[in-house]
Each structure stands twice: as C-alpha cells, then as structure tokens.
Amino acid sequence: MHSDRGTSRRVPTGLILGVVLVALAFTVRALSPAFAGWGLPDRAQDTITLALSVIIESAPFVFLGILLSTVVQVWLPHGFITRFLPRQPVLRRASISLLGMFFPVCECGNVPLARGFMVGGFTVPESITFLLAAPILNPVTIITTHQAFGFSDGILITRIVAGFVIANVIGWLYSRHPNPDSLLTRTFSASCAVPDAPGDEHLGHEGHGHAPGRRPGRIERSVDLFTRETAVIMPALFIGSLIAALTQVFVPRSVLLALGSNPVWSVLAMMALAFIVAVCSNVDAFFVLSFGSTFMPGGIASFLTFGAMIDVKMLALMRTTFTTRALVQITALVALMSAAAGLLVNYVA
C-alpha cells in the first residue's frame, strides 16, 4: 500500500494468517454441533434454514458472476465485448439482451457481471437491458422451461418473448433519460470512475490506487476485484436471503393459492409469489410446474417472466448498484409488462 517496501517479505504473514483463519472456521464448524442443543423455536430455526438454503444456493453463482466479471475487466482486452456489438443503439441493446446466451450465470451472478460490463464500457441502460434479459434469455433457463412445460399453453414462448421485449423496452426508456448515470448509487459511480482495471495498460498511466513505480499484476487485480465485489454483493445476498426467508415463514402461502383460478388474480398472485420465493431463474420452471394444476397459464407465464427479473433477493443485490428510485421504477415497469403478458395468455391464448 503506502509503503511498498516489504510487500514481498510480508506475503507469507498474510498467507499464514488466512490459512489459520480458515482452519479456525473449519474447527468451529466441526466442533460446534457437539455443544448444540440450544433448541431454537421452530420458526426461528426455519428462518435460518431457509435463509441459509438461499445463500448456499446463490453464493456459487455470485462467485461465478464475479469471476466472469473479473475475466471481462482484467483478462480480456479493454472493449473486447463492446467491439463485437452493433453501434446502432436499438440493435446494440437487442444484441446485449442475448449476451446471457454466453454467460449462463444465474440472476444473482448477473449483478456483479453487469457491474463489470459497466466498468468495461456499457452504458447504464445497456447494463439494465442485460440484467433484465440475461436470466431468461440463457440456454439453461430455456432448456429447463422447455423440460417443464414443453410448448404447452405458449408458456415458453411467452417467457422468451416477454423477457426480450421487457428488457429492451426498459433499456430504450432509460436511454431517453437525460442523465442515466444518476440511476447509479454514488459509491458505484465512484468505482466506475476509477480506471483501475481495464484502462491501465492502454492508457499508459498508473492506476490511481497504486503506489508509483509498481503496477499490480493481473492475479493481484483479480483478487482485489474479488475483495471489492464481495464487499458489496455478499452483505446484500445475506440480507436479501434473510428477508426472503422471513417472508416465507410469516406469510401463509395458502392465501395466494386461493386466487389461482381467476384470470386476473392468478397473474397477480403468481407475481407476488415469484417476488417472495426468489427462486433462481434457471430452475423456477420446475418449481412453478407444481402449481400448474392450481393456476392459469397466464399466471405461470407472469411468474416466469417477473420472477426471473425481480424478487426480494434481486432487489437487495441490485441496490448495490442502482438507486432506490431507479429500482422502484424498474420494478413497476417490469411488473406492469409481465402482468400484461400473463393477461394476454389468459384471455387470448
């Protein structure tokens, strides 16, 4: 950091410290069941189990998202991805909404990836388009949705088309915004402004964050990025999962299920369910399949469209990057268009 002398000499100290901490964590984990038996009340216990299941399920995708984001920011040449995209804004966003085909990360992993894209030259509306489209327009989601529903009731087609349209319409709307950067949180704008990652070599100046005379290597920059991204994403993941778990434990699901056979209510109830269960878009088709007999197809289609883009956990994750105001707008827009898609299926199809 400020004094560069001794960096290499201290490496072993840090490594040893890290290894000791990890070993300590493993020891605590391995020994603690022996001292357990503090019987928690069922609801508290279930809240923990549910929150933990979301975290354990999502964390690998978050790590994968951060790693891919690191590849984009540190290992690929600057502008590598933007180079292949059309320049015309509408076509450009349309192409971006298909990028998920090459980055089949779950939606939680998309947040760090989208952050990486923004640092790497995407505009704010473009990254919103990516963030909304990628959970639906990716091979894993399409395959699992097809496995679950085939082509019955137009559910698969509705999901794909609605995902594409919603992401592009919202991207277009925000491209009309006079100052799209104001949609970002201050902290994230600041980190975009620090050209620490991709610009370094090309612009030929020293990164701001580093002492003169020493430029960190790629591995070091990757680890640095991991540290900074997890500092932002992991708290959001933990808090979002806790909120999702609390909602699960305290809001009876039967209330929602009672609404299943009405064309309008089935759509709204399924969107509410999607919002609170926060299942990954890769597998939500299997989850919602079990409601197929209770709910009308439009409700299912809305669930699959809305839930992939927005839910409690995603909002917590997206809040790391976007202002609350922007998220309220995006959520409202996605909800309205998803509901429209569902109603269309219920009344027309």
Binding site: G14, L15, L17, G18, V22, R221, D224
Partner: peptide, 11 residues
Amino acid sequence: VASFIFRTPAA
C-alpha cells in the same frame, strides 16, 4: 485465502 496475501485494496 489469496486476498490475505495481497494488500492493494487497502490503498
């Protein structure tokens, strides 16, 4: 573990 080795984020 690697993050314990590098100290750049501090800067």
